[in-house]
Design a binder for these strands. Structure first.
Lengths: 229, 229
DNA sequence: GTCTATATCTGGATAGAC
DNA sequence: GTCTATCCAGATATAGAC
């Protein structure tokens, strides 16, 4: 699948993401009209990621956020009741969208090798569509409260498990040679994360997300299909 | 080489690192007696990394640093003249120690495959000895001023180049098959970085740094030595 | 629903005693 | 060299007008 096809398929426009955010947090948001709320959340969300990814969430002042989002300080506080709550909202919302999309993408596929390729591709494409959020989530994990931090770790281990299970299946089938599946899955994760953590590098070198996906797939398969040793 | 042997060889005790820090910044530090300065810098350095790695440098208050380091606010300011300068000092110092050690380690080795293995191992072992600094440097890069930021990028690309040059050499010799060396080198970097960025994961799984080094070496060699495709 | 104005507190930084 | 006390800018958060 081409990246553009994927993008249309998952249909993760900024507005769609903001609507998710609104619905997920209906109880704590004071605004009642969905249209207004979604429009403003979209602005807050985008502005918060932009500033945080430049200087870190804790260094972002709410004045700055207010000016970047085009809303007053007072208005901001009708969408969340503290800066920490904003952090949790951003984190929880993005994670919910990402996890749901991933699960949708990786189910209903047959053939071990096909599934491995597709899982790698889906992870990469998704992190490309939601790049600012993925970068943010990675960099701010340590600033979350205990509960949210735990969920972030679980999400990392869950997506890793997607890979280790496919690999184990391939080993059981005799398709792949026997390897340390946990370590290999961790390495796949690390490589997938590099794509959104070091965008400057790959952009500078004009590497497309498709090329990157193809490279990783080839790299991993060479290891799994290697003859001896 | 075993990790413990490496550790003794490079002799990077905390005190040694602090002495470097003192010598590198002699002009901006007001304290004249080397003994006093090194002892306190050691405390400041360790405390700053500890707090920053927990909550981020910008969220660390100097009062907190002062209490963790066991020095008053006033005393802190005889070692640096602003919080930003402290950030730059930490960054510059660690980078200088790391780069020098790496260059020492990777020179004077013959045999392409041997050099590749050794480079991977040296990077990992070094990041293990200086783990708090490596984690800090990665997470705080975006908060550096333009000049320091540029140097951090250069250091990343320099170490990447170490790998791509060895690989290119191997390809020229006909030892390795022809691959995208830039991408492969970037992937090696990403995997090496995961070791110090996600220590919790590898500790939880009781993976030793030697095992990790062996795994990556095998992974990369399988790709470089793969037959067809 | 949104704004402006303001209360309150915490942070970085420094002066001056010892 | 180090400490305590203090200044003041800038932060989060809220009150009340519109």
């Amino acid at each position: 699948m081409k990246f553009e096809t994927f993008k249309k398929m998952v249909n993760l426009s900024k507005k769609a993401i903001s609507r998710e955010l609104f619905l997920e947090n209906r109880e704590r948001i004071k605004i009642k009209k969905e249209g207004v709320a979604v429009k403003n959340l979209e602005k807050i969300f985008e502005a918060a990621l932009k500033i945080s990814n430049k200087k870190g969430f804790s260094a972002m002042s709410l004045r700055e956020l207010s000016s970047e989002a085009g809303l007053s300080m007072g208005a901001l506080y009708t969408y969340f009741s503290s800066k920490d709550e904003l952090l949790d909202m951003l984190q929880a919302m993005g994670r919910a969208v990402a996890m749901r999309t991933l699960i949708e993408q990786i189910s209903d596929l047959t053939g071990t090798q096909e599934r491995l390729r597709h899982a790698i591709q889906a992870h990469l494409y998704l992190s490309e569509v939601m790049q600012p959020w993925f970068y943010f989530a990675y960099m701010e994990t340590k600033n979350l409260n205990r509960q949210e931090h735990k969920k972030a770790i679980e999400a990392e281990l869950f997506t890793e498990k997607v890979f280790s299970e496919i690999i184990e299946e391939g080993v059981a089938e005799g398709l792949f040679r026997s390897v340390d599946t946990a370590l290999l899955a961790a390495m796949i994760k690390a490589m997938l994360q590099d794509w959104y953590l070091k965008r400057w590098k790959y952009r500078r070198r004009s590497v497309t997300v498709e090329e990157y996906a193809t490279f990783i797939t080839g790299f991993v398969e060479a290891y799994l299909l290697a003859s001896g040793k």
